[in-house]
Computed example of a mutant assay.
Amino acid sequence: MLETRFLHPIQTAGLVAALALPTALAAEPATYDLDPEHAVAAFTVMHAGYAKVLGRFSDIEGEFTFDPETREVSNVSARIGAASVDTGQAARDEHVRSADFLDAEANPDITFTATDATALSETSGTLAGELTIRGVTQPVELSVTLNQVADYPCCHEKETVGISASTMIKRSDFGSTYALPVFVGDDVDIILEFEAIKRD
């Protein structure tokens, strides 16, 4: 998987408070793995101007290092299996996997590599990085919301991070120009919802 390092900016007051804490009380950065049972990577795209088609991927994996105290993030990596696309119709799924769209046979992995982050508040910000689809890499910026960091209330009971993120891309930027400009839209809205579990 692709990997990068970056620091999540924090407000000056928060930084001062963190530095003032005794070392023994400071939270230690830890690695979090995406929980595949609670991870959504989905998209919508306009069909012939009538309505948007919703699709999602079932093959998702990723990890990152996160410090809940300082909101510092590093070692971010994410991968989606292009062939796992599901739009609710088998024939359409096969077409989306073809060279007209994802070209999944030649380029089986969709990857994202983060390069920078900007905090807008304690729970929201933007994440810039490089998205690779069909073997083409383009810069993107995600709007990110940190929903919760807490011990899971059941099952594994491990510390879990919950995140929502979204962005919009143009598929033509990644070499998919089939049925443009009318039959299949160029703008693709990306929706990410996931839980990530603290690694032992």
Rank of each mutant, 00 (worst) to 15 (best):
L2S: 14
H8D: 02
Q11Y: 10
A13W: 06
A13T: 12
G14S: 03
L15M: 10
V16D: 04
A18T: 08
L21D: 04
P22F: 04
P22C: 03
T23N: 06
A27S: 10
P29Y: 07
A30Y: 02
Y32I: 05
Y32Q: 03
D33T: 09
D33N: 11
L34D: 03
P36L: 00
V40T: 15
V40S: 10
A42L: 03
V45M: 08
M46C: 04
Y50S: 01
L54E: 04
D59A: 15
E61P: 05
E63F: 13
E63S: 15
F66V: 03
P68I: 06
E69K: 07
E72G: 11
V73K: 03
V76G: 00
V76R: 00
A78P: 08
R79C: 00
I80C: 05
G81P: 08
A82V: 09
A83E: 11
R92M: 11
E94V: 14
H95E: 12
H95I: 10
D100Y: 06
F101L: 14
F101Q: 06
D103T: 06
A104E: 05
N107L: 05
D109S: 12
F112S: 02
T113I: 11
D116C: 05
D116N: 14
D116H: 14
A117L: 03
A117V: 02
T118P: 00
T118N: 00
S121N: 05
E122G: 14
T123A: 11
A128G: 15
G129A: 01
I133F: 12
I133Q: 07
L142H: 01
L146P: 03
N147Q: 13
A150P: 10
P153I: 02
E159P: 12
T167I: 09
I169F: 08
K170M: 04
F174D: 02
Y178A: 14
A179G: 02
L180F: 05
V182N: 09
V182Y: 11
I197F: 00
K198E: 09
R199T: 13
D200M: 09
